[in-house]
Amino acid sequence: MPIQFFGEDLDANMGANSSFVPNGNAVDAQNDFLSRLSDINTADFESSTLGVSTHRLSFAGSTGTIEGILRSNRGSYVSNGSSGAFPTSGSQLWGSGSRFSIEFETPIVALGFFVQDIEVNPLSLQLDLVGGGTKDILIPSTVRAPNGGLTYFGFIDKDQPFTRVTFLEPTRGDGYGFDDITVAEQVQSVPEPSTILGTFMALGFGALLKKKGAKKDN
């Protein structure tokens, strides 16, 4: 079953000079997402050439690197930031005024990222699934948000791995900033609440039978 992670920090006073919120809702969502991954493979844009609109991304992790190719239409490129958009690490980010995609060399089951300055309408993703077909995901951000807001969105879906994600084109006149994109080929096995409850019930029932057996022997 898919799991989503979402947090946003909105402040009407953030505006064009907004900056990273180190202890806000977005970071809480990121930490929750990262805690579910077996290996954290993250790409930023610090080694990218300013103004470049298509290039390779290396998602480096502790056990290896996942490679991807970022392709964009006109209006998306590496930058130092703009009005309302800012890096969440280092000094560079991916600024987008149109759709762009990342194609991965291996199937991916988890994706998370920071995005800034979602104002006019929510951002949508389209996944190209392994085996064919696509899946759309709408990020539940606040509509008509103030300039300079910070959002983190992530999801895990072990049952529907994908090889490409497309960040769909924003409405005319709007643009976003992206940074610290994390992907994973596998995630930790975390029991669902019903599974945990069933385990405790089984343990309790086993202890009860053991206790009754001991009384019978006496």
Rank of each mutant, 00 (worst) to 15 (best):
V78H: 00
T88R: 09
Q92G: 06
V109N: 10
T106Q: 11
G95R: 05
S79K: 06
I108E: 06
A85K: 12
S79N: 10
G75D: 12
R71N: 11
A85S: 15
G90T: 05
Q92E: 00
L93P: 04
P107L: 04
Q116L: 00
R74G: 13
E105V: 15
A85Y: 12
T88V: 14
G112Y: 04
L70P: 03
V115S: 01
S101F: 07
F86H: 04
P87L: 07
G90Q: 08
V78L: 04
I118S: 13
S82R: 13
Q116D: 03
A85F: 15
R74D: 03
G84E: 12
S76L: 01
P107M: 04
S96V: 02
T106L: 04
N80I: 04
N73R: 08
G95L: 11
F104L: 14
T88C: 13
F104W: 15
G97L: 01
G112F: 00
S91A: 06
V78N: 10
S98L: 03
G112W: 08
S91L: 05
Y77D: 02
L70D: 00
T106D: 07
G95E: 11
E105C: 13
V109F: 02
Q116I: 05
I108A: 13
F113N: 13
L93Y: 10
S79F: 01
I108R: 15
S82T: 15
F104N: 15
A110E: 05
T88K: 10
L111F: 04
S98H: 03
G90R: 11
P107K: 13
E105Q: 15
F86Y: 12
V109S: 09
S101P: 13
